[in-house]
Computed example of a mutant assay.
Amino acid sequence: MNIANKLTILRVMLIPIFLVFILTDFTAMNHIYALVIFAVASFTDFLDGYLARSMNLVTNFGKFMDPLADKLLVASALIAFVYLGWLAPWVVILIISREFLISGFRVVAASEGLVIAASKWGKIKTVFQMVMILVLMARFDGEYIFYIENALVYIAVIFTIISAVDYMVKNKHVLTEGSK
Rank of each mutant, 00 (worst) to 15 (best):
T44M: 08
F61G: 11
V92N: 08
W86H: 01
L87F: 02
Y147H: 09
G49P: 08
P89M: 06
F43H: 07
V74C: 13
A77G: 08
Y83I: 14
N150G: 03
N56Q: 03
T176V: 15
F18W: 08
S179D: 11
V165Q: 00
E149W: 00
F61E: 08
E99M: 11
V91Q: 05
A110K: 02
K172M: 06
W90I: 15
G178P: 05
K63G: 15
I93F: 13
V165L: 06
D45G: 12
A110E: 02
Y33N: 03
W121A: 15
V131R: 02
I22H: 01
I124K: 03
Y144E: 14
Q129M: 13
F21D: 10
F43T: 09
L51S: 15
I158N: 08
H173T: 05
D25L: 00
V165S: 02
A28L: 10
L114T: 05
D45W: 04
R106Y: 08
A156Y: 04
F140G: 10
V107C: 07
D141Y: 01
T126R: 01
D70R: 05
W90L: 08
M137L: 14
L72K: 01
V135F: 14
I79C: 11
A77R: 02
I145K: 10
K63Q: 15
I15T: 14
I95T: 09
I145M: 15
L72R: 04
L51V: 10
V169W: 02
M65L: 15
N150I: 03
N2E: 05
V174S: 08
R139H: 07
L101E: 00
Q129N: 13
F21S: 05
D66Q: 13
A52N: 03
K170T: 08
V165C: 12
V115N: 09
W90H: 14
L35C: 08
A164K: 00
A117L: 09
W86R: 01
I155P: 15
V58I: 08
G104R: 07
I148H: 02
S54G: 09
I17V: 15
V36M: 05
N30E: 11
V174C: 12
Y154D: 07
L35G: 13
L7C: 12
W121V: 06
K180N: 07
K170D: 12
A151F: 10
S97M: 10
I102S: 09
K120Y: 11
L10R: 00
M65S: 14
L101N: 04
I17H: 07
L14V: 08
L114I: 01
V36E: 03
L14G: 09
V91I: 13
A156M: 13
V131N: 13
L101Y: 03
E143V: 12
W121M: 12
A151R: 01
N2C: 06
I93R: 01
V20N: 06
V36Y: 06
N5W: 07
M168Q: 04
N150H: 14
V92F: 01
G178L: 00
A41H: 04
L87H: 04
L68K: 03
P16S: 09
G62M: 11
L47R: 07
S42P: 13
I95Q: 05
F81H: 02
N171W: 00
H173D: 14
Q129R: 00
S111L: 11
A117K: 03
P89D: 02
Y33T: 10
L23H: 03
K71L: 04
L47F: 10
